[in-house]
Simulated scan of single mutants.
Amino acid sequence: MNIRKIMNAEIEMVSASTSLKEAAARMERDRIGFLLVGQGRNLQGTLTDRDIVIKAVSQGMDMQATKVGDILNSEVLCCEDTQHVDEVARHMSDEQVRRMPVVNHEKQLLGIVSIGDLAQYLNPELVGEMLKGVTEKRHTA
């Protein structure tokens, strides 16, 4: 089964000019910890609640004056809508990510897939492997 069949096409996106205060309020309101950053179907990056804490709050940045574009992750790992569910699960595990934007061959944003979405369609052994990969700490020398 390809990822397009299970992805969530409802995309939560903010623009790079959104204040961190507004982005954090949206995360709190929607009970999410992850936002896509861009316009229309053009993805510029991602923002997590952890990014806000580590890159802004801990540095004493003004949450109203600081914009999402100032701290977003511009190197976004994506999968293509035609990829197989198992392949995407392994990629997410290898890269230790819990969510992944889904794009078409023209790199236009179509949706997002999460570990929870994938878990419903994988065999239990692969689910355990994927969760272990995402939650393990990487050892760097």
Rank of each mutant, 00 (worst) to 15 (best):
V14G: 01
A9W: 00
A25N: 11
T48S: 14
A65N: 07
E10I: 15
G45A: 01
V76L: 01
Q64H: 14
M7P: 04
A25E: 11
A24S: 12
G60T: 10
A25D: 13
C79R: 10
V76E: 01
V102D: 07
G133K: 00
T140I: 15
E12K: 04
G111V: 01
V113P: 02
L131V: 07
M92N: 03
M100R: 01
A16V: 12
L36Q: 05
Q83F: 10
M7D: 01
A56K: 08
E12N: 06
L109P: 02
H105W: 09
A16N: 09
I32G: 10
V134N: 03
I32C: 11
M1Q: 12
V57F: 12
K137F: 15
E28Q: 09
D30W: 12
R50Q: 10
G69C: 04
E22K: 10
D86A: 15
D81Q: 06
V102Y: 10
V85W: 01
D62A: 06
L118S: 05
G111R: 01
T48W: 15
L118R: 06
G116A: 07
D49R: 07
V103G: 02
P101K: 06
Q64E: 12
G33I: 08
E136W: 00
D86F: 14
G40Y: 04
H105D: 14
L131W: 04
S17V: 13
K21L: 15
I112V: 06
Q108T: 02
I11L: 11
H84K: 15
S15F: 02
L72M: 14
N2M: 13
K55Y: 03
D49H: 09
D49P: 07
D94M: 00
L47Y: 08
C78H: 07
A23W: 08
E136R: 04
N104M: 00
E75W: 11
A65R: 11
E87P: 02
E80C: 04
M92E: 02
R90Y: 08
N123K: 05
R26V: 13
Q120D: 10
L77A: 14
L47M: 11
R31K: 14
V57Y: 15
E22G: 07
S114V: 05
N73A: 14
T82N: 14
C79N: 07
H105Y: 09
V127Q: 03
K55T: 02
V102G: 06
Q39N: 15
M130E: 06
D70Y: 14
A25P: 03
V57N: 09
L110C: 08
N2Y: 13
V103I: 15
H105M: 09
M61P: 13
